[in-house]
């Protein structure tokens, strides 16, 4: 089913998506927020620019965007897949606790802020280009991968990556000589067994965007983890 989003409010558009049932295609999307919010079992593909909080609280549905998406993609998503054939704005994967986000190009500031994992829930976000400052801020779990596939003058990640990180892992496809990490994390070259952890997602990324997974893996990766399970234990109170 095709939904023409022209002049539809976000409420009307989301209602149309929900009543479409299993599968729908949105055309002429222009800034409507909360598309697919909370949905469990459907497939949505989007032409145009989806608004903020695309796939917020997503609970198993799959969303595909032809071009760019705005801020807070996959905010607090629980399960499912979001694929963006372009760049995303700030705070992608904000507090996501399950599911997978694939971004072909760049992510803005605060990608993966407060991402977390629980029991069998293991959120993963793969960013093909570069990420802005505060990548993985307050990350508590899950995996963020930045591939740096479109090299330019800027480093693979901006300032203050992994600030406040206390769980999960960040993989940066770079030796990261020019990246300054906070004292509470360890950044080390990834070993082959580290990369096994993200092989499936890199294969999926390659399949989605026409990249060769073997080439994606054939580069130095830096893996960042918190120093301990409680790196900020004595920062505020001595206990």
């Amino acid at each position: 089913m095709v939904i023409n989003a022209s002049s539809l409010s976000y409420q009307a558009l989301n209602k149309a998506v929900r009543s479409a049932g299993g599968e729908c295609r949105i055309e002429n999307c222009l800034g409507q927020r909360f598309i697919g919010a909370g949905l469990s079992d459907c497939r949505i593909s989007i032409g145009g620019i989806p608004g903020n909080a695309l796939g917020a609280y997503l609970n198993g549905a799959s969303i595909q965007v032809d071009g760019n998406a705005q801020d807070a993609v996959g905010d607090t998503m629980n399960a499912g897949t979001i694929v963006v054939h372009g760049s995303v704005g700030d705070a992608a994967g904000y507090a996501m606790r399950g599911g997978t986000i694939y971004i072909r190009d760049d992510a803005g500031y605060r990608a993966g802020v407060h991402m977390k994992a629980y029991a069998d829930r293991r959120p993963v976000m793969v960013i093909g280009g570069r990420a802005g400052s505060f990548l993985g801020e307050y990350q508590a779990g899950g995996i963020i991968v930045v591939l740096g596939l479109h090299p330019g003058p800027q480093p693979i990640v901006g300032n203050f990556p992994c600030t406040g990180m206390h769980g999960g892992k960040v993989f940066l496809r770079s030796a990261c000589g020019d990246v300054l990490f906070p004292a509470q994390v360890t950044a080390r070259p990834a070993a082959p067994e580290d990369l096994e952890e993200i092989r499936a997602e890199l294969e999926a990324f390659g399949h989605l965007f026409g990249e060769n997974p073997a080439e994606l893996l054939n580069a130095p990766f830096t893996v960042v983890t918190p120093d301990s399970s409680t790196p900020y234990r004595q920062m505020y109170v001595a206990n």
Binding site: L30, G31, I49, G89, S133
Partner: peptide
């Protein structure tokens, strides 16, 4: 503030970027 605002009046605008803080 949003890309949608630009696309509303310039669907084929180029060199889209987000300036750093």
């Amino acid at each position: 503030s949003e890309e949608a605002a630009i696309r509303a009046i310039a669907p084929d605008a180029e060199h889209l970027r987000s300036p750093m803080g």
